[in-house]
Simulated assay, not measured.
Amino acid sequence: MKSKQQGSVSKLVIALMGSALFLSACASSSTTADSTIAVSMVKITDAVKAAAWNPTIKITYGDGSINFQPDGIPNHERDAYYAVPNAGVVVPDATTAHIIKDPTSAQKYSFDIPSSPTFSATTTSTSLGSIGVMISGAVLYNPYEGDGKTVAMSSNFTITDSSGITASFVDKCAGHPTPGMNGTGGAYHYHGLPGCVTSQVDITAGPSHIIGIALDGFLIYGANDIDGKAVPITALDECNGITSPTPEFPNGIYHYVLPGTADATSSIRCFHGVVDASQIQQMPPMGPMPDLAAAAIKLGITETELKDAFNNQLPPDFPSAAKKLGITEAELKAALGL
């Protein structure tokens, strides 16, 4: 559990960096041309065209890539209420959360995804933001919450407020919205296998069909193989990938599997294909952040001077920043409300 001060510092980091919280889920590694395996390139355009995409997703087929513009609103029922973190809390539990009405709102996503994905022997870590587009219109996140290590599916909980309203952190579809701040956020996303999505394209004890596409171009499937049997976790690689037949590719193709687990294998932890880092969308901000403009006024300096004092350092170095500003660390933190 994060302390209030730790949570506030986390929000300061976000404000100073001028972007949403964007942590690596595991150690980053780069992909290079030398590590790619050309024979693994398979054109997926026809299969993508035949998949059951939510009609609200704008899909444009180009030369070598496919552009997806989902609005993030899934085409299935969501919970009316969700349990979300209290201010200053990154990863909540039943004692550090409160209930709000479903804050899900339309997002402005645009992903250029390769139509002939290239397998790479070197993996690239997935981030805490969007890592794939699902046929429902929502996006997929990796298994982790905001600290980059707590698995969302294994840390789910349900609380009841004084009005008798009950809400869960993660809903029955393995998803939830980011709580957001000042009108932002509301980005609904999955951390695991969404039964609300597989039920739209699969039958009981039947094979899994396409339920999404990762940013590297490899397709995402549910938990079953071509024979309708559960894919063993031990058959998947470190990125939840496997090369095997699917209904759309009976001769076999490399693809990702969401196995319906509640541990770190619940979602994709890394890309095994060449991925354009510019397509990785950061996670929307969560919770209130320190008001840098107000803090600067209290200190008698400009907001730019305050940001420059921290030098975009992560995590923030309060003693160094205070020294640059010619004040004490206590005075700096007091101005920031920490």
Rank of each mutant, 00 (worst) to 15 (best):
residue 217 G to R: 13
residue 187 A to H: 13
residue 118 T to A: 09
residue 315 P to K: 10
residue 269 R to I: 00
residue 175 G to D: 02
residue 179 P to F: 00
residue 2 K to G: 00
residue 263 D to E: 04
residue 66 I to M: 08
residue 204 T to S: 14
residue 297 I to K: 15
residue 72 G to H: 11
residue 230 A to Y: 10
residue 260 G to M: 01
residue 296 A to G: 10
residue 87 A to K: 13
residue 33 A to P: 01
residue 94 A to G: 00
residue 9 V to M: 07
residue 74 P to H: 12
residue 68 F to W: 14
residue 336 L to S: 06
residue 2 K to N: 11
residue 41 M to Q: 13
residue 89 V to C: 08
residue 185 G to S: 07
residue 99 I to P: 08
residue 36 T to S: 12
residue 317 D to Q: 04
residue 62 G to I: 06
residue 3 S to Q: 02
residue 163 S to T: 09
residue 261 T to M: 01
residue 139 V to D: 11
residue 241 G to S: 13
residue 319 P to D: 07
residue 252 G to N: 09
residue 94 A to H: 04
residue 247 P to I: 06
residue 22 F to I: 02
residue 37 I to E: 15
residue 272 H to R: 12
residue 8 S to H: 15
residue 242 I to P: 09
residue 83 A to M: 04
residue 310 F to W: 03
residue 12 L to D: 11
residue 70 P to V: 07
residue 98 H to Q: 05
residue 209 H to I: 03
residue 158 T to L: 08
residue 327 I to H: 05
residue 36 T to K: 14
residue 134 M to T: 07
residue 272 H to P: 00
residue 274 V to S: 02
residue 56 T to H: 15
residue 290 P to E: 06
residue 175 G to S: 08
residue 10 S to R: 10
residue 183 G to F: 08
residue 308 D to P: 00
residue 274 V to D: 01
residue 272 H to K: 10
residue 276 D to V: 11
residue 14 I to H: 03
residue 331 E to Y: 01
residue 260 G to P: 01
residue 167 A to S: 06
residue 220 I to L: 02
residue 195 G to F: 00
residue 224 N to Q: 12
residue 253 I to D: 09
residue 52 A to S: 11
residue 285 P to G: 07
residue 79 D to S: 15
residue 314 L to Q: 08
residue 136 S to W: 10
residue 268 I to A: 01
residue 111 F to Q: 14
residue 188 Y to H: 08
residue 218 F to L: 07
residue 155 S to F: 05
residue 115 S to I: 10
residue 87 A to C: 00
residue 51 A to C: 05
residue 33 A to D: 08
residue 107 Q to C: 05
residue 60 T to V: 14
residue 142 N to E: 02
residue 59 I to R: 09
residue 304 T to A: 14
residue 322 A to Q: 10
residue 315 P to N: 06
residue 290 P to A: 07
residue 112 D to H: 07
residue 74 P to Y: 12
residue 90 V to M: 14
residue 292 L to C: 07
residue 4 K to Q: 13
residue 72 G to W: 12
residue 137 G to F: 11
residue 257 V to N: 05
